[in-house]
Design a protein around this nucleic acid. Structure first.
Lengths: 145, 145
DNA sequence: GTGTCTGCAAACAGTTTGCACTTCT
DNA sequence: AGAAGTGCAAACTGTTTGCAGACAC
């Protein structure tokens, strides 16, 4: 079975780029936890494990991971982008509370289907999608009254 | 019939805020064209019409428009946010080409339905959603070969 | 060996903010 | 009159970039 590490190596080699310890460590950390993350959190986690990858390398590597399809930009909030790894994981969408910012993940077959149909209608080659449903969570709903 | 201008006034009054010429001009310009826009474009359009609203006021007013639900943040790209007005318009989603960045709008009943169902399942009060389908448009698909 | 990558720090761009002045109510 | 809004420019923050030294191939 092909791991994300294999997939990334393959991607790099195909582009004539090098496999470096920094790139591998960043990749490993991105896949170490199954949560949304932002650049700051990622750097913090790397530091805590004694990895020295610089901020610049993290940004540069993240761009490669997105380009390779291993990672997706999920949403932009609080002035910066949030990411999640997607390789080897079933796709899911997000339900977001506009007040407390809680995020609930959910899966939805209807969207996958719509994705294919709509792609076909416009002759697009579809690679993925991003769906967010916005509203107020049970707690915040209650508090609004 | 209630116009977006009425709706915005109502929102402002309810918050104890003032109705100013700057806010009205910015609102009018936001609804003057039915296209996605970013802050720079909006300011340019205002300038071309001789309106003097400052950059700061545009940012401040845009935040109010988003809060009031008249405008939605659509996606973050090229280092800044893109918006669209939604009041009085049927909701639509976006099909985006990852290469040439072309955007096709489409409507989709299945998503509206899923939105309600999923909101219900998690006891969320749903106010809207945002769906982007990503891929390659017919032209870019061709060129990749 | 050579061309790519890294880390650093400086540069950048979009956005926010403090403040003096203006304006709405 | 008094509170709220505006414009300006400076500050801020996330991200990108130029460059010299390090390193994968």
């Amino acid at each position: 079975m092909k791991t994300e590490s294999d997939a990334f190596r393959e991607f790099l080699v195909k582009k004539g780029m090098r496999v470096t310890p920094e790139r591998e460590e960043i990749l490993a950390e991105v896949f170490a936890e199954h949560e949304h993350f932002d650049v700051e959190e990622l750097i913090l986690r790397l530091r805590q494990k004694g990895k020295r990858a610089s901020r610049a390398s993290v940004y540069r590597t993240l761009a490669l991971l997105v380009e390779s399809g291993l990672v997706q930009e999920v949403f932009y909030e609080d002035g910066h982008m949030h990411y999640e790894h997607i390789y080897g994981h079933e796709h899911h969408c997000h339900l977001r509370c506009l007040k407390c910012r809680k995020i609930v993940e959910f899966r939805n077959g209807a969207v996958e289907e719509a994705e294919k149909r709509i792609g076909g209608e416009h002759n697009f080659e579809v690679t993925g999608h991003r769906l967010e449903i916005l509203g107020f969570c049970p707690d915040c709903r209650e508090k609004k009254k």
